[in-house]
């Protein structure tokens, strides 16, 4: 532990903005949101108490149920896709290849771009009338069909593909740093033992990188819950309501459909879900580790 006797009024003053933000912008707003979710608020806050009514209505709303399912489908595809693809990229880049930095730069650049840009690019590329489908047909394959973007049962996967395109580089960068940190003598030992390279990766390296996999997963999962702009740019939630997601649900009901009570109930559900998933990880990551370091 760092010594506690170095105290200063200045330190408290310096932290004042942080306290204000934490108390008002974080804790205060969360409490407020939760409070409103138990009212019948439409546009302007009314502080009555209607119990779980908003929540009952929420889970009776098709759009919310579909949003939840989509979040799950998108999340699973996106996270697993990014992890596998990103891991493969990192491993292949780690094979002492030529022009390594060129490949690295190419794999990571989409991560610098916004979801809006990502969404618009993929929307244009995959639009059935003038995009890839039409191009391939022009090349002679008249029956070629790739119209997932306008198919209600497939459009969510297109969003996942665009997401994977954008964020795989992130996983690659994180894992590559991990791979570069592996003791070179470990590789030598495995070579003397005659262990095939792929087995070294699978049995020795992957277990060693598990903290990095966890970190990457948390970062990706955070992005999944927040996903909004990508959907807006790519499908706008359509066709129909087939690609709605919770984040969009909340914004729509807050600002367009003027049903704040329902929107806050939805955001409270999001908040609690995230909290339940994250709390143990956050605790182990930041606070247990800290005690160890202080010794």
């Amino acid at each position: 532990m760092k010594p506690r006797f170095f105290r200063s009024i200045a330190a408290q003053i310096a932290l004042l903005p942080a306290w204000l933000i934490v108390i008002f912008a974080y804790l205060g707003t969360i409490a407020w949101t939760i409070r409103i979710s138990f009212t019948s608020t439409k546009v302007f806050p009314t502080y009555d108490f209607v119990g779980w009514k908003q929540y009952e209505r929420l889970f009776a709303t098709d759009r919310w149920i579909i949003s939840g399912q989509n979040l799950f489908i998108f999340g699973a595809c996106f996270i697993i896709g990014c992890l596998i693809f990103g891991f493969l990229l990192a491993v292949f880049i780690d094979q002492k290849i030529r022009a390594e930095s060129v490949f690295r730069t190419i794999f990571l650049y989409p991560y610098a771009m916004s979801f809006i840009v990502t969404g618009l690019v993929w929307q244009w590329t995959l639009n059935p009338t003038l995009g890839v489908q039409q191009t391939v047909r022009n090349w002679g394959w008249q029956d070629f069909t790739f119209d997932w973007l306008v198919r209600g049962d497939r459009a969510i996967y297109v969003i996942a593909i665009a997401g994977i395109w954008q964020a795989s580089g992130l996983v690659m960068a994180i894992l590559l740093a991990g791979l570069r940190g592996v003791d070179q003598e470990l590789w030598k030992a495995a070579k003397v033992d005659g262990i095939p390279t792929w087995r070294v990766y699978l049995h020795i390296i992957v277990p060693m990188l598990s903290p990095m996999f966890v970190t990457a997963t948390v970062l990706l999962a955070t992005a999944v819950v927040k996903v909004y702009d990508l959907v807006i740019a790519l499908t706008g939630g359509g066709p129909g309501i087939s690609t709605e997601v919770p984040a969009k649900f909340v914004i729509d009901y807050l600002f367009n459909r003027q049903n704040v009570g329902l929107a806050t109930a939805a955001s409270t559900v999001m908040f609690v879900t995230v909290l339940v998933v994250l709390a143990p990880w956050l605790y182990s990551q930041y606070f247990r580790g800290q005690r160890g370091r202080g010794a």
Partner: peptide
Amino acid sequence: FWRPKGANFLFAVLLLGAFIPYQVFLYPL
């Protein structure tokens, strides 16, 4: 370096803020 009172709590909430969906904060904000 200064670790004033409540520093851990402050940091914990700040951290949590990085992961929580923004939708929770929007309307009150």
